[in-house]
Design a protein around this nucleic acid. Sequence first.
DNA 1: GCTCTAAGTGCAAACGTTTACATCTTTTCT
DNA 2: AGAAAAGATGTAAACGTTTGCACTTAGAGC
Lengths: 333, 333
Amino acid sequence: MHKQEVTIYDVAREAKVSMATVSRVVNGNNNVSKETRDRVLEVIKRLHYQPNAVAQGLASKRTTTVGLIVPDLTNLYFAELSKGIDDIALLYKYNIIITSIENRLMKEDQVIQSLLNKQVDGVIYMANRLPNEAAEAFKRTNTPVVLAGTRNNRDEFASVTIDYKKADTEALNLLMHDGKKNLALVVGDEDAVVNGENRIPAYNEFIKENNLGEPHVYTGVKDYSDGYNLYPQLVKDGIDGIIVTRDISSVGILNSAIDAGKKIPEDLEIITASATQLASVVRPALTTIKQPLYDMGAVAMRMLTKLMNNEEVDETHIELPYELVKKQSTLNR
Amino acid sequence: MHKQEVTIYDVAREAKVSMATVSRVVNGNNNVSKETRDRVLEVIKRLHYQPNAVAQGLASKRTTTVGLIVPDLTNLYFAELSKGIDDIALLYKYNIIITSIENRLMKEDQVIQSLLNKQVDGVIYMANRLPNEAAEAFKRTNTPVVLAGTRNNRDEFASVTIDYKKADTEALNLLMHDGKKNLALVVGDEDAVVNGENRIPAYNEFIKENNLGEPHVYTGVKDYSDGYNLYPQLVKDGIDGIIVTRDISSVGILNSAIDAGKKIPEDLEIITASATQLASVVRPALTTIKQPLYDMGAVAMRMLTKLMNNEEVDETHIELPYELVKKQSTLNR
DNA sequence: GCTCTAAGTGCAAACGTTTACATCTTTTCT
DNA sequence: AGAAAAGATGTAAACGTTTGCACTTAGAGC
């Protein structure tokens, strides 16, 4: 990068005002007379002046940039959340620095630290767990954080989610009322807070309360082939109804069953807990717990803008409504 | 944001050296004695000092940040490209500012300008067209640009692609040799350079050279429902083999055909030109022109790092190998 | 006509780094 | 032993803004 070609100084000189006045014009401060403003604007246009956001950031201590921490860019669940975030960010003129943390070249807290060093004004966090070092770094720099589609162990940070327990219970009820006796839960990360503190407990309670025998929780089922390969085990365990947290895994299970000549939903009912494009595009289409992903992202970002402006936020743990959408992977009745 | 709690000054004072020395330690400059270095490092650790990247950016004129311009975050094609970019960016310690431009709140060149104002060291551009104002802004600020998975009308900018013409011709050949007589091309954006200058001409030439009658190019087929709704028209036009640029549209067509009781590939052969997860997950799985999306992203980012360092770049228009992967949506022979 | 207020503007000090240059030591070479 | 080279450190000027404060001017109120 070279030295900047045209700076606020050049504009000031050309418009015969001080740089302070140019700055005021640029920032829409109204303590500038109409004539001066017009003259400055004309010069800005003529010289193609564009303010240097880095210098602005240093001087004003606001970068109008937010950090986005996401496990995996190619996971549609996060992509749809991100889209909601992105739209609201654009509306409020924030830029987004995105970092995915599934890549293990760097540890989570290093990634976060590098984001904080960039002086982001706030962070939206979508990963499963928030390491302690990271939480401390956030507090130390006083950077607001909102968790989107995930939750912190001790609810220390603002969050936007759905009511996972209620959703899962409702889904399990659906399976039970369809006459299924052997219900299982298939999750990706066992140590994800949402799973560990919401989904798995909700499942266990449900099984116990309804005397459905031994609980079956399958963990570490993260992608298509994990799901595909899990299916034989499900058969062996006599499972006839499942809730799967990741829809790519659901599809793996679905295809595995079909390839084995089984009937969905007759032999196995499947409900997927994250309804992306994928779930509605496969055949049979998957019955889903439909999370309002776009809205969750949008609400999270909107909340973050408030936190960044030190505005009052009435509720920092927002639960958005979900919907249980029946498609073809459960019996239609 | 508050004033930074601990700065390079504090470290300097505490370690009894000048800030220049601290800076040298931080930046790994080796003109520092072992003892001094250790002392400084100890203080850095003790005070939790973290360099302010904004100040670094202003002083050094390098932000170690690159801009990523993408039409739509939830399109797996771009997500997979982005993943390749992201991994290499991490490797070279660049952060990524991502901006999607499908949202029409802001015009393309405004988005780009806002990125340039942030003083990104380089840009990877994945959108279909590069407006002139944007091209000029890039040149004015001397910011290197690499196009990934797309191309500029006049090849003014570095790019990483596959050989679209060759790939499409090969795919059309496959359809023709399967005995299909009425081949069509289904594209999203007609004015995308890749379509306008590569795919459509390749298709038209092929039809002409092989005396396959009237060409059928369907444009503006961008999403699932566009594809779904297009199918009846294909039937009406007697189409029996298609190449579809977007795989989400392919899936729409596929499902529409199946819902209409047709057989794929017997009644209609489908080849999709962007092989994401989606194409392999539906049944029948789609035959694809498999672009090495991850690698394309990675190569683009690697090239950008060279351009940003003013290193020699031997070839600025890289074509990576593709693969025609036969699955179930074409006849198996 | 005089004081007071407000609007419009400029001055200059921040913001937290990097880096060219200068200075002082120490080592190496003859 | 003396000169030259190399190594270690410090000084201070950038980088391009924002912003608190001070100043000027002009109109309002009396």
